[in-house]
């Protein structure tokens, strides 16, 4: 039902777009019609596919690396209260720096290739993942702490057997945010300096007044983000169900 509704909205939206372009006679280099965009999408499908692959690689690698770094950091912070007191305020402070402003610097340090884009993505998703997971890890019910204490539990064991599983839904929440941010990081990285990727292709098309190709890239990027959102949403749901024993 939900899928049907979405499809309906999409069809209506495209219809309105097509109608607006046809009726107002706006030049195609300002706003191309959907049919023109579809044409561009078809003609340049091989090129677009190549660039999509590049962006998708950056996004996925960035997500994986960022998630690993974020979860490990969250666990360390939750295990060692001193580290938490020292590092957490710094982490929050770094969020005041607009990560996008670092993009030129990252390109300088990590080159025009895939590296700088992955670093960019990692930097963007690191905080939401760390913060959400850390929140979950430190919110474990006090009564479980007491019970484990009475059992003579070891701190690291308690983390592994109780705190981490019960914080998995929170990790899922962080991952869902990360999935939305990750493509933004990759594309911004590509804008600053790249030879591949959808962000690069958009700039290239824009420079050559091929607005239909630009729109085509944009649509593919949106589809990529939606796909990622769905996959990560499934993962988050699975994590929540696991923690609930379902």
């Amino acid at each position: 039902m939900k899928g049907k509704d979405t499809l309906l909205t999409l069809v209506i939206g495209l219809g309105l777009w097509q109608a607006a372009v046809t009726l107002t006679d706006v030049p195609h280099f300002i706003l191309p019609s959907p049919s023109r965009v579809a044409q561009a999408l078809f003609i340049h499908r091989a090129t677009i596919f190549d660039h999509t692959l590049a962006t998708a690689t950056e996004v996925v690698l960035g997500l994986v690396i960022g998630t690993i770094l974020g979860t490990v950091t969250a666990v360390q912070l939750a295990l060692f209260r001193t580290a938490e007191r020292l590092i957490l305020p710094i982490l929050v402070f770094t969020q005041a720096v607009p990560v996008f402003a670092l993009a030129p610097l990252l390109t300088l340090w990590f080159g025009y290739g895939i590296g700088s884009k992955i670093v960019m993505t990692v930097l963007i998703i690191f905080f939401p993942v760390t913060s959400a997971f850390h929140d979950g890890l430190t919110r474990t019910d006090n009564r479980f702490h007491d019970l484990a204490h009475a059992m003579g539990a070891r701190k690291v064991r308690f983390m592994w057997h109780v705190q981490i599983p019960s914080a998995l839904p929170d990790l899922g929440t962080g991952l869902k945010l990360a999935a939305v941010y990750a493509p933004i990081g990759a594309v911004i990285g590509e804008w600053v300096g790249a030879s591949k990727g959808l962000g690069y292709l958009m700039l290239l098309a824009n420079g050559r007044a091929k607005i239909d190709l630009m729109f085509a890239s944009l649509i593919v990027l949106a589809c990529l983000t939606v796909l990622l959102h769905i996959v990560v949403g499934r993962l988050a749901l699975w994590l929540t169900r696991y923690a609930q024993g379902k």
């Binding site: 009564r143 479980f144 609930q244």
Partner: peptide, 16 residues
């Protein structure tokens, strides 16, 4: 400390 165990009002089972 090494001789006591306890049971609370809530069963405190781990659902997973």
């Amino acid at each position: 400390a090494y001789q006591i165990s306890y049971m609370a009002q809530s069963a405190l089972v781990l659902p997973w």
